[in-house]
Amino acid sequence: MVETAGALALNSPSWWQRLLAGKSFPVMVVSAVILIVWYLGAIYLNSPQIIDRYKKQNVEWSFSQLAKDSWSMERAVLPAPHQIAAELKKTVIDKKITSKRSLVYHAGVTLSSTLLGFVLGSILGLVLAIGIVHNQTLDRSLMPWIIASQTIPILALAPMVIVVLGAIGIVGLVPKAIISMYLCFFPMAVGMVKGLRSPDPMSRDLMRTYNADARTVFWKLQMPSAVPYLFASLKIAIALSLVGAIVSELPTGAQAGLGARLLSGSYYGQTTQIWAALIMASVLSALLVMGIGYIEKIVTKRMRGGLT
């Protein structure tokens, strides 16, 4: 019995041992450091205005008073985390999703153009990659253009795309999706060119000994080999697609979307609104990338019989 108890104690470490061994402890430490720096930063950045106000009103003030005021200031230069959390609660939980004041509604608007752009961009990237891998002329002629396309700042290009497409009557979701597509076809094309070329010479020779045609080699060798590259590219592409969707909402005076929230926030000095939209965007981005990662896990498991 004594032995069993000893073994049990060894097998079940105390809560802080488990915490130290797991992933959550480092994450908590980093989060705590960020929060402390943030609160200190809020005092540093907001205090000049508050001290000005104290002087005008001729009131005595202490540091604790200053800290308290700079953490509850409206239109703060840097709003405190709990203010942003309150804003998030107000716009995410308290508002109905259908309301134009709901952040979820705006995220949904951005998400729809993100996903459409992502699908279009991924298909475009894949088609380009297939063309480049199978055709030397395309390899030489297309690749420089593909690289050049990404040297133009998207912020400069986005208004042009919206204006040009608007002039021929295409408005709404599609122009935004096209800007997303413009950003996310690139990692897809580059990644898949690499992936489709990844099979080693021996695997290719094997196909040659079977006198396999190009289509067979593509489906039975090149595509399966490219799967790891495919998912790496898709993860980058979907994150870029979200960036594209937000950027495309900025110059257009869009009525809805996270970009529109950012823009109206900066018009009216609503910094908490900007920060809330930013946090929403990063949560959305993380969820999208995690979603791709989840699909990758399933596909890899099925392809390699449980080896991940």
Partner: peptide, 21 residues
């Protein structure tokens, strides 16, 4: 002869496709 699949080739390495059983 290759187009007629006249021979089976065994390489220096197994060259099995890892995604296939």
């Amino acid at each position: 002869a290759r187009q007629q699949r006249s021979y089976g080739y065994v390489f220096q390495a197994p060259a099995l496709y890892p995604w296939r059983t």
